[in-house]
Design a protein around this nucleic acid. Structure first.
Lengths: 352, 352
DNA sequence: TTGTACGCGTTATCAG
DNA sequence: CTGATAACGCGTACAA
């Protein structure tokens, strides 16, 4: 039964090392050595094998390599961000850090569906991914991933977990809030207000804390009534500014919890006849490029450096794969992107 | 040297079927049968094996299965869309169609970098993906993917290719343009204008053609000067409306080539004191939810059904994997999402 | 310098 | 009913 298969080099099925060996007139073992530069081979033989491999477009099957090495050079990226505006920059950073290592990323949108989550994780485990990077909501900490006893390295990126032994990377929202506020102060503003997202979000609290701290450093306070918590939407930004200006017309600067909120705020300000930045300076948060740059005026905003965060997450994951253990929460600094909504770019520079 | 390994069930390394067999006191082959429901086994044996597998949290290694079956149950998704607003809905659809089959998606952002493209494709091929779905710019057709002679099934989704033997799925922009225009006509408008993206984009031409066709069906024409081609940006939408109203104040309806353009247009209209939808009705394109819904007024717009397109792409890919051959360009219908920018929703209904 | 044989984890076939 | 063995594609000691 085990007659050697048809000698015809059928192009339908990808060439295996056997085909190459056959074509080069050597055995499989020799072909392997020739292609991997191992062992002692006559240069002529090596060349002959290489030529055959080229001709046949031979590509070593990574499944086998993975099987042998016990590593697949793949990682899973789990997200719940259906719009992708957080996923894509992260993915970019991850790919940058992983690309060099020729590691590929399985991306799956869990859509907050625990059932999907379970099946996807099962598949990912079966496919022997080297590790997992988990993104998620940043409001309530999510339960640790149900990976059973598997030793799979996991990094939580831009998401919180209830597991203290887990490693998670988050933007430093406190510092981000400080950054925005200091910029506003440098612009000479003294009556700052804050329009932001739902109060229970940790990020909301942190950004506010950062703002308060920066103000305190200048002998200023952030009165309760100048902090408006609502939703992460344009509509809320618009509505909030209406209320704010009504009860506190002296406000000369606005720190918004997101670019979308800032867009709404800018609209409201314009309609109320307040000039930005002359009357009111505005800083956003997210640096959602396509939104912030198109604002009128273009929005100065805080960038969470998600690309870098992705890179760092991937590096940490690689380290974990290599056996390094780490736990806890790491905060990565944000960065201010100066556009026009706070006045000339001349105030930039003296950032941390 | 080949002493059977330490009997201690070390938890560090995932359990293999050998561990299970050992624990259940059977051979590997029997264990396999027990777990897969194959062959004739005594119920007691089957149960014993299952119990052992459970206890050890045994998970079959997909690498091996893939190796044997010649299929990995993975596909690659290649994109250049760095914002992810087209990628994510597509990914959603793809996962929906693939999820049932327990297929996972490698996502890679090529970033229009041919070098990256080459290495990623090499990796993907090495990892033996079952197929590829390629997204890309829809302006100039991209060259076919450099996959050599490999028989890898490829579907181009929301992107054009120069290869006539390839299969590509695109939104039906002509129909989309018609949809938008008919809606405007139903609203009683007769002086329509079109503000859209760069003239050389095929999508721009198609949407315009659809618009012209719908108008023609009502005995109307689309004069050259009421079509403004520019960029896919808010700023262009804003600027275009300025020009348009100046030279043609009678315009009572605007079909915009994208939601972003529409946002810019809405801003300009508001500032010129034109009421939307009373004075001018506006329809956008993309249904970029977060942008369109937050517009003032909320934007009626054409949805490209990218989720469905993703699903269909995945199904086609699966069919191709199964041996079915297909080529050509398939256009999938768009859908109108009615919000407030054209007046009451009462005009909806009689769509194709 | 090259060939042989084994192992990676699993399934399937065939023998017992 | 269960066990042994080949095979998937490749790398690698070890033998020749």
């Amino acid at each position: 039964m085990l007659i050697a298969d048809d000698a015809a080099p059928s192009r339908r099925t990808p060439a295996t090392i056997r085909d190459v060996a056959l074509a080069a007139g050597v055995t499989v073992g020799t072909a392997s050595k020739a292609l991997n530069g191992r062992g002692q081979l006559r240069a002529e033989t090596r060349e002959r094998v290489r030529a055959a491999a080229d001709r046949l477009e031979f590509r070593p099957n990574d499944l086998v390599r993975s099987l042998q090495r016990g590593r697949t050079f793949t990682v899973g990226l789990l997200t719940n961000d259906s719009f992708g505006r957080f996923t894509m920059p992260l993915l970019g950073g991850i790919e940058d850090a992983l690309g060099a290592a020729e590691i590929l990323v399985f991306l799956s949108n869990l859509r907050d569906d625990p059932e999907r989550e379970a099946t996807v994780i099962t598949s990912l485990l079966a496919k022997q991914v080297d590790g997992l990077i988990v993104m998620g909501r940043r409001s309530d900490p999510r339960p640790p991933l149900p990976v059973g006893r598997s030793r799979l390295p996991i990094v939580y990126a831009n998401s919180r977990v209830t597991d203290p032994t887990a490693l998670s990377l988050l933007p430093d929202d406190v510092q981000g809030g400080r950054l925005a506020t200091e910029h506003l102060l440098r612009a000479g503003r003294r009556h700052l207000a804050h329009v932001t997202g739902p109060a229970h979000w940790e990020a909301v609290q942190h950004r506010r804390d950062g703002m308060a701290a920066a103000l305190a450093a200048h002998g200023l306070t952030l009165p309760e009534e100048r902090v408006l918590c609502g939703a992460w939407t344009e509509a809320w930004g618009y509505a909030a500014v209406g209320r704010l200006l009504e009860r506190d017309p002296a406000v000369d600067a606005l720190f918004c919890g997101s670019d979308l909120i800032a867009r709404g705020a800018l609209d409201a300000l314009r309609e109320q006849g307040r000039l930005v930045p002359d009357d009111v300076a505005v800083v956003g948060f997210d640096n959602w490029e396509i939104i912030a740059a198109a604002a009128r005026p273009p929005l100065t905003t805080v960038d969470m450096n998600l690309h870098d965060l992705g890179q760092e997450a991937a590096r940490r994951l690689l380290a974990a794969v290599a056996g390094e253990v780490a736990a806890g929460t790491i905060r990565l600094p944000c960065r201010l992107v100066v556009r026009a909504s706070c006045g000339g770019a001349n105030l930039a520079g003296s950032d941390a």
